[in-house]
Simulated assay, not measured.
Amino acid sequence: MTETTTNATPGEDRTVVIREVGPRDGFQNEPETIATADKIRLINELGQTGLTRIEVASFVRPDVIPQLSDGVEVLKGIDLPESVERMVLIPNTKGLDNALAIRELFDACTLFVSASESHNKANINRTVRETMEDVKTMGGRIAAEGIQYGAVIATSFGCPYEGHVPMDRVLDLAEEFAESGATELGFGDTTGMANPAYVHRFFTEAARRLPGVELTAHFHNTRGQGLANAYAALEAGCRSFESSFGELGGCPVPKGSTGNIASEDLISMFHEMGVETGIDLDALITAARHAQEVLGRKLTSHSIVAGPVLWESAA
């Protein structure tokens, strides 16, 4: 395991939790079908890195995202340590019905909405209010099953169709999710429109309005500001982050929305700062390189190329 930094500031040790979303958010954007066996192998490899949360599958309609149509087979085939939380994304009531039919195969589920009307309609063909009415029913069912329930609000930091998204609109939706039973709320920079100054203000206010709720930051590196935004969220008190190995992923709508921040780049930064993740960075970089081999193309993660910082060999 790569030793954490000798360059950290004394007295600033902190701990964060990373949710790896590559097997869902990352794979769904790949144009070529990834073999189920390859997905299972890569997820199992991720499970050996020290990650404690992996988003494994989604219950979207197969005709909408064919790449994820083998979600049930993937859930049945993976072999993860008991310490790893298997998470699934639920788009609507039908998706929840399908998920509950195999309840024993996952540990937690995530519901989602876009804060922007235009993006929500483009993404799932529903209004925000239609989605949130569905959330009330689904939240009750999830709670009755004793399943850990989280939610993600897309376009929290800006919409490619509408531009600025008011902070109050996002946090009002977050409060609705919390009232429906969500114990974790993720805020997505879906097309990479966030900036560090706004991110700091946002998470400061989110913590004030949502006491007792775990807040998660989900940034994309579309315009190269992903790690800076993660740092701003950390400084505002956020201790939970979503990222994708190899910098896989991006929003299916619109064009030009490149991937999530790379898990290995995010973790490398945290380790250099003395922030503990519990993750073996070397093992994670190896998994990302294996994903690169499976996909047959170079991925955009910096750590795949450079590897971790090796202080003992630096001249």
Rank of each mutant, 00 (worst) to 15 (best):
M1Q: 08
M1C: 08
T2L: 09
T2A: 14
E3V: 13
T6Q: 15
N7E: 14
A8I: 10
R14L: 12
T15S: 10
V16P: 12
E20M: 03
P23N: 08
R24K: 14
G26Q: 01
F27E: 07
F27V: 04
Q28M: 08
Q28C: 01
P31T: 15
E32D: 07
T33I: 04
T36I: 02
D38T: 05
E45N: 11
E45T: 10
L46K: 01
Q48N: 14
T49H: 09
E55A: 00
A57M: 09
A57G: 04
P62F: 12
P62Q: 08
D63R: 15
V64G: 09
P66M: 07
Q67G: 05
G71F: 11
V72E: 06
E73W: 01
G77L: 02
D79K: 11
L80E: 04
L80D: 01
E85D: 11
E85Y: 14
I90F: 07
N98I: 08
N98D: 09
A99V: 03
E104K: 11
D107V: 00
A108Y: 12
V113Y: 15
T127Q: 11
V128I: 14
R129Y: 13
E133I: 13
E133A: 14
G139I: 00
G140T: 08
G140Q: 06
A143E: 07
A143M: 06
G150E: 08
G150N: 09
G150F: 09
A151M: 00
V152M: 03
Y161G: 00
E162F: 03
H164A: 07
M167A: 01
D168V: 03
L171Y: 12
E175N: 10
E175Q: 11
F177Y: 05
F177D: 00
E179F: 10
S180K: 09
G181H: 05
A182N: 04
G186Q: 02
T190S: 02
H200E: 13
H200S: 05
F202T: 00
A206C: 06
R208I: 12
L210N: 14
V213N: 13
E214H: 11
L215K: 14
T216Y: 10
F219H: 06
H220V: 00
H220T: 00
H220F: 04
A228E: 05
Y231V: 08
L234Q: 06
L234V: 02
A236G: 07
G246W: 13
C251I: 04
P252V: 00
V253G: 05
G256I: 05
S257M: 02
I261K: 10
I267P: 00
E272N: 13
G274I: 12
V275L: 03
E276I: 06
E276S: 13
E276V: 15
T277E: 10
G278V: 03
I279H: 09
I279Q: 13
L281H: 07
A283H: 11
I285R: 11
T286A: 02
T286M: 05
A287Y: 04
E293I: 10
E293V: 07
L295C: 06
L295G: 09
L299N: 06
L299F: 06
T300H: 08
S303D: 12
S303R: 13
G307A: 08
L310M: 09
L310P: 07
W311H: 15
W311A: 10
A314R: 14
A314M: 15
